[in-house]
Simulated assay, not measured.
Amino acid sequence: MDIVNFFETLAGKWFSQRTTHDLAGQSSQAGQSNLQIDFLPASDGDLAETCASLGHDLSQVACGLRVHQDSQIDGQTQKTQGTALMIVLTPTDAGEGVLVQATGSSARQGRYRIEDEVLTITTPTETGQVEERLWFINPNLRMRTSVVKVGDTEQIASFCSEIRMGVSKPAT
């Protein structure tokens, strides 16, 4: 599966159940999110505008996603809401490429690759990196893990199971 096909399969409305573990503090936290993910073709104006503002060659845009998130962490009363753009630049022959994640006026640039139908995104941070992996169990169930490293030390690990919502029941 190539990156454009993989991103097309991400489109839809998803319910995410997440557990995050702070390895240093030895604490865990659960939460839920509703995600609306829209696939954006390479010709999308928002992708072009964001790439131009960051100095990326528009001819290198492969596709993108607009992700609307509405999240609730267990034990907290305030929800978190936000929208982000994910922009995939054309991969190399080895199947790797640049992924830009933009929210509001900030943007982070990382690398992606697909191996054995698992998408891995590695994004540098000021103090380390975030590595996220995403794969499908079936078309309506996907898994996602992430690990936040500070230096070479893993600080935070999370696991999400995500179910596609609004899928019609098969005819009997």
Rank of each mutant, 00 (worst) to 15 (best):
G64L: 01
S53F: 01
T123I: 11
L65A: 07
E115T: 10
A171T: 15
V4P: 04
R66I: 02
I137N: 10
I137Q: 11
P124M: 00
R18I: 12
T77K: 09
A48G: 11
T19Q: 13
F136N: 06
Q155L: 13
K149P: 05
Q26C: 04
G31E: 07
V147Y: 03
T20V: 13
T123R: 04
R113P: 08
S105M: 14
G25Y: 05
A84N: 11
T153Q: 15
I37T: 09
V88Y: 06
L23Q: 14
S168A: 14
F159M: 15
V118R: 08
I73T: 12
D46G: 01
C51V: 05
D46S: 11
H21W: 02
R164A: 07
T92V: 07
S106C: 07
G151D: 14
S33N: 14
A52C: 02
P91T: 07
D38Q: 11
A94Y: 02
T120A: 14
L134S: 11
F39D: 13
V98K: 06
L141C: 09
A171Q: 15
G45Q: 11
T145S: 06
T123M: 09
D22G: 02
A94S: 12
K79I: 11
I121G: 04
V61R: 03
Q76Y: 15
N140C: 08
C51Y: 00
A11K: 06
Q129L: 10
L85R: 01
S33K: 08
T83V: 13
E96L: 04
D116C: 01
S105N: 15
K149H: 08
A48L: 09
R113W: 07
G104K: 03
Q26G: 12
G45P: 00
V148F: 06
D57F: 00
D46L: 06
E115V: 13
D57G: 03
A24G: 11
A84F: 02
